[in-house]
Nucleic acid binder design. Structure first.
Lengths: 195, 195
DNA sequence: GAAGGGGTGTAGACAGTGTCTACGAACGAC
DNA sequence: GTCGTTCGTAGACACTGTCTACACCCCTTC
């Protein structure tokens, strides 16, 4: 009885719980471990329950990706808040971005898999925009002559490193890389560029 | 009868045909349009036939990805052969890399999806290594002081641009980008870097 | 307090998939 | 001509996403 009350009156609604379970499954078994039914099983509900919130498999994945973007944004915002010097802020931002991609490999991969982000793919990619604007502002603060260009250079470079690292391709190419030092030099390079 | 002879004596063995069909399906319906059974149907054979060559779904995808790497390598080699000046060679290489990623969006995405490349994932990523070594050599020819570092910078940057473009994320961030000009400036930037 | 109704989860069904297995037809070697 | 290998067929199974009808609980309304 108490259990029933606890379950039905759970402070965490099922939708949220399903996303959390999805992220656990993502860590454990990769992207294709995250099925509608697997998530339901993991959350202890019937196989049809998720359908109430995610009408389709892709919708579930999109929701998980969105939660990933939310976490990443929060990470980056706190990174910026932790420093005052503009260059240090850029460095911290880059560091956290890469740390996120390294820690949440599969989630990061999912976040940029537009092929399974359904209709909300557009919305999802819109998450990137404010993040990018932040980098533009940081570049301007750091004294870049053309902050927009510098930000684009930095962003694409960083994303390339993050992606290649998430898929472990960079190890094949270059062996062990001191990522922090590598990225610090890249930031200096792009900031000093005369475009 | 003639048909039978033609079919069974086909100059193109089934394995090759299945990969070709897989790439067509990839273009038409994205990655999850490429199923073992769908490929079999598309090639006009029974659903069990592919199993003779691809014991698993991932094995099929890995083979398709491998064929993509082969094409990309050929593209880049011919790009290098088409120029003599080292910097022009780098420019052409970058141009073709991005063109490939833009033209074969889904294939490119598949090629860097390590989660579905089975055991052969390691082999697959090894495709990148000779390509990278080529870029190192080009950077050296172009007079870079630390060709290895420059190549790594260039490679990650290029891959970032390619990825963000393939997923159409770059448009959201920066609108229409003149990719060729953008990349030309990036090459100059990295070559001139004092590390 | 009883009746009704909307939101929420259950349960059964269906087509489609990957994977496994047994089977058959074509072919070359001896 | 027979044997054995290679290659594709065909049926089965468990599992998946999706659809539908159903049951429950809480809330409003009379």
């Amino acid at each position: 009885m108490i259990d029933t009350v606890y379950m039905s009156g759970d402070v965490q609604p099922l939708r949220t719980r399903l996303i959390a379970c999805g992220r656990e499954l993502l860590d454990e078994g990769g992207i294709d471990g995250v099925g509608l039914r697997a998530v339901a099983r993991h959350a202890g509900v019937s196989h049809g329950a998720p359908r109430r919130y995610f009408p389709t498999h892709k919708a579930l994945l999109a929701a998980i990706a969105a939660s990933g973007f939310a976490d990443l944004s929060a990470d980056l915002r706190s990174a910026i808040a932790s420093e005052t010097d503009p260059v240090a802020r850029l460095r911290q931002t880059a560091h956290r971005y890469l740390a996120f991609a390294g820690t949440h490999r599969t989630l990061f991969e999912l976040m940029f898999r537009h092929d399974l982000l359904e209709g909300s793919g557009e919305d999802l990619r819109q998450h990137s925009k404010p993040l990018f604007e932040t980098v533009v502002a940081l570049a301007a603060d750091a004294g870049a002559a053309h902050p927009h260009v510098v930000a684009l250079n930095l962003w694409t470079q960083l994303h390339g490193v993050a992606t290649l690292r998430a898929t472990r391709s960079i190890e094949v190419i270059a062996g062990d890389v001191d990522v922090d030092g590598f990225v610090a030099r890249l930031i200096d390079l792009h900031l000093r560029a005369r475009v």
